[in-house]
Computed example of a mutant assay.
Amino acid sequence: MLIVTAWRRHPALVGARCPLQTFSTLYGAIEMKNLKPLLVALAFAASAPFAIGAHAQAVDHSKMDGMKMDGMAASLSEGEVRKIDKEAKKITLKHGDIKNLDMPGMTMVFQVKDAALLDKVKVGEKVRFTADKADGVIVVTSIEAAK
């Protein structure tokens, strides 16, 4: 209530009946045709950060398979060999999280980059390996027995 009654006591506002009259008395009358462009500009400026954020979230990152990320080396993942198929160049691994592929732990069949990798491990053995996506398929690129 103090603010409402305080504006009436200002010497420049004696006789003003409402706060809107107070504003026009202190700053001069603002015509609507001058105020409209200002309000439109303020609306655009206020909404710009939201539009930019929405665009960044809408980008489809799944089409970035062919990009080379030199700074992002594939990290070693841990697993256990369940099956080896040398003829098909495939290995079945029960593995933990594969962080560079954002894949949770599971048991699955992988292709191997080089058939010689399959000679390094045996069924039932704990291993450390790296896997990458190549041509839409997840491929084991290196594997070694865990120590």
Results as ranks from 00 to 15, higher is better:
Phe44Ile: 15
Ala46Thr: 13
Pro49Val: 05
Pro49Ala: 02
Phe50Tyr: 12
Ala51Trp: 10
Ala51Ser: 01
Ala51Val: 14
Ile52Pro: 00
Ile52Met: 07
Ile52Cys: 00
Gly53Tyr: 13
Ala54Ile: 11
Ala54Phe: 12
Ala54Leu: 14
His55Ile: 08
His55Cys: 09
His55Thr: 11
Gln57Ile: 15
Gln57Gly: 13
Gln57Tyr: 09
Ala58Gly: 08
Val59Arg: 09
Val59His: 02
Asp60Arg: 07
His61Pro: 08
Lys63Leu: 04
Met64Phe: 12
Met64Asn: 13
Met64Gly: 13
Met64Asp: 14
Asp65Leu: 10
Asp65Val: 09
Asp65Lys: 03
Gly66Trp: 07
Gly66Arg: 10
Gly66Lys: 14
Gly66His: 07
Met67Trp: 06
Met67Lys: 09
Met67Pro: 05
Met67Asn: 11
Met67Asp: 10
Met69Ala: 15
Met69His: 15
Met69Ile: 12
Met69Pro: 00
Gly71Val: 00
Gly71Tyr: 05
Gly71Glu: 10
Met72His: 08
Ala73Asn: 04
Ala74Thr: 01
Ala74Phe: 04
Ser75Pro: 11
Ser75Trp: 00
Ser77Met: 11
Glu78Ile: 03
Glu80Asn: 05
Glu80Ala: 11
Val81Arg: 04
Lys83Leu: 13
Ile84His: 00
Ile84Arg: 02
Asp85Cys: 00
Lys86Val: 14
Lys86Asp: 04
Ala88Pro: 03
Ala88Arg: 06
Ala88Ser: 14
Lys89Cys: 02
Lys89Tyr: 00
Lys90Val: 09
Ile91Ser: 02
Ile91Val: 13
Ile91Pro: 08
Thr92Glu: 12
Thr92Leu: 05
Leu93His: 06
Leu93Ala: 00
Lys94Leu: 02
His95Lys: 13
His95Arg: 11
Gly96Leu: 11
Gly96Cys: 05
Asp97Val: 14
Asn100His: 06
Leu101Phe: 01
Leu101Ile: 09
Met103Asp: 09
Met103Lys: 10
Met103Pro: 01
Met103His: 05
Met103Gln: 12
Pro104Trp: 00
Pro104Cys: 02
Gly105Leu: 02
Met106Ile: 06
Phe110Gln: 03
Gln111Gly: 14
Gln111Ala: 12
Val112Lys: 06
Val112His: 04
Lys113Glu: 11
Lys113Pro: 01
Asp114Thr: 10
Ala115Leu: 01
Leu117Tyr: 05
Asp119Asn: 14
Asp119Pro: 00
Lys120Asn: 12
Val121Ser: 03
Val121Pro: 05
Val121Leu: 01
Lys122Gly: 03
Lys122Ser: 07
Val123Leu: 08
Val123Gln: 09
Val123Ser: 06
Gly124Arg: 09
Glu125Pro: 08
